[in-house]
Nucleic acid binder design. Structure first.
Length: 457
RNA sequence: GGCCGGGUGGCAGAGUGGUUAUGCAGAGGACUGCAAAUCCUUGUAUGUCGGUUCAAUUCCGAUCCCGGCCUCCA
């Protein structure tokens, strides 16, 4: 089976066929760098990381994920904390990379920054003006949604509804309330660039149109992000790019992930109900966070709970227990075909995870050590396409969260285990059990095996 | 109001027009000094009401409820 993905543009699953055989170009909207990313922000990055890993098996993939480092929220935050915009964005980008690394993400091919592509944006805006898709008004350049018949086709909004929408900002310089800003004037306090329309800065959407074209060309394969970007961000990107490069298609496939919720409500900065990736990492390993993020289908909503995290931890423990004793021969191992099949069917990660557990069961039931080892290698390779099993099993079991930094350290644990072994040799089982209880109270699980006592957190 | 998605066992979460995943938690058994891990067994799950059908959790319609978007959003 070949890869099928649900295309937002056509509202159905479609066979993915690259524009250029053997090559694949994808663009994912990255963060606006004024603050730590939260778990909801991280969901698409994890999802598209898995798509990237899957595609890389058969194609040369150009994966572009931008960094938005010019935005009014950045300006506001910099003012609030008395930092320069440059320092704020550089620091936030550093945090972002730390968080993404902790979640086990591969680096994209390109991570373009908006501020480094202003000339491309200016050229594109000029192009839109020349083609009659944009107009200038009071130092602004606005996109005229009226100029593009298909405006609204991605989000299925029609023009009448947009005009009726109560939340549209009706600026006096707009010809139409639904027109959106391509370029706006800056004063001496806000960052800006010289342009044919005066000193100013780009609007929100133009950077993605300009940068996707710069790195992937006017037509490329797949564009993705969260469902909340469908309108207005992606609709407007589509309008800009189509206006500038039409009639060529912009992105051929659009892919959007469902929202993360907390107590059934969307996790968002404005509601204040968000958990930053950083905060979650204080208590749980990045792989546990990744596991919960892929334990439901990417287009479904996912409710973020502590219960879900601990279930994910337990599920991962089971898999890592199976990988104990695996001798990695360094060979590229085969991924289980059923897992590939699940992923190729619109990235069905929960089904892929269930298959991982079936393999785990067969490992535990394996009769010969040879077949056991073979299955272990399949399990590891199969998990890795999901971005799991980035650690050796023993490192997974001994990992200690920052939140538990004052709990027993490895040396304490080892010496208590040694004490207990001595007690068991002496048949002093009550002393041995006392030590075991003490460790368990600290979250340390012991396992007596024929080859000695194993422990895990 | 418009557009879109969803309601599955104690919890999480897939597939599927008939035999009904997977994990977590629970119960019983095997194993163990006892545990743990593991294996085996186990649990009358598909919001409600209709329709189509030999057969519906799955298809169709209605209805109730929940969530998302409608110019801050991943």
């Amino acid at each position: 089976m070949a890869l099928h993905i649900y295309n937002t543009l056509h509202h159905k699953k479609e066979l993915i066929e690259p524009l250029k055989e053997g090559h694949f170009g994808m663009y994912v909207c990255g963060p606006t760098v004024y603050d730590r990313v939260h778990i909801g922000n991280a969901r698409p990055y994890v999802i598209f990381d898995i798509l990237y890993r899957l595609l890389k098996r058969s194609c040369k993939v150009l994966y572009v994920r931008n960094l938005t480092d010019v935005d009014d929220k950045i300006n506001k935050r910099a003012r609030e904390i008395g930092s320069s915009i440059h320092d704020l964005t550089v620091q936030t980008i550093g945090w972002f990379h730390e968080d993404m690394q902790a979640l086990g993400l591969l680096e994209p091919s390109h991570e373009p920054r908006a501020t480094q592509h202003v000339p491309e944006m200016i050229a594109m805006i000029q192009n839109l003006i020349d083609k009659g898709h944009a107009y200038t008004a009071e130092g602004h350049v606005l996109y005229s949604v009226d100029s593009l018949r298909e405006y609204g086709c991605l989000s299925r909004h029609n023009r009448d509804e947009l005009i009726a929408g109560a939340r549209v900002e009706i600026a006096p310089y707009k010809r139409d309330p639904a027109d959106f800003v391509l370029w706006k004037p800056s004063d001496s306090e806000t960052p800006g660039w010289k342009s044919p329309w005066g000193f100013g800065r780009p609007g929100w959407h133009i950077e993605c149109s300009a940068m996707s074209c710069r790195y992937l060309g006017p037509t490329f394969d797949l564009h993705g992000g969260g469902q909340d970007l469908v309108f207005p961000h992606h609709e407007n990107e589509l309008a800009q790019s189509t206006g500038a490069h039409g009639p060529h298609t912009f992105a051929r496939y659009w892919m959007h992930n469902g929202m993360l919720t907390v107590n059934g409500e969307k996790m968002s900065k404005s509601l204040g109900n968000f958990v930053t990736v950083r905060e979650a990492l204080q208590k749980f390993h990045g792989e546990t966070i990744r596991y919960i993020l892929i334990s439901s289908h990417y287009r479904q909503q996912l409710d973020w709970t502590d219960e879900g995290l601990s279930q994910s931890k337990s599920s991962l423990d089971r898999l890592y227990i199976c990988l104990r004793g695996l001798v990695d021969d360094g060979h590229e191992n085969a991924v289980d075909p059923k897992i590939l099949e699940a992923l190729e069917d619109d990235l069905n990660t929960p089904l892929a995870l269930s298959r991982l557990h079936e393999i785990a069961t067969s490992i535990n039931k394996a009769k010969s050590s040879k077949s056991r080892m073979q299955l272990m290698q399949i399990l590891k390779a199969s998990g890795q396409i999901l971005g799991l099993f980035g650690l050796a099993a023993e490192d997974w079991f001994t990992w200690r969260s920052a939140a538990a930094a004052d709990s027993l350290n490895d040396e304490d644990i080892k010496s208590l285990i040694a004490e207990r072994i001595q007690a068991r040799v002496n048949k002093d089982f009550s002393a041995a059990d006392l030590i075991r209880d003490k460790l368990l109270a600290q979250g340390i699980h012991l396992e007596d095996t024929p080859n000695g006592t194993l422990w895990r957190r």
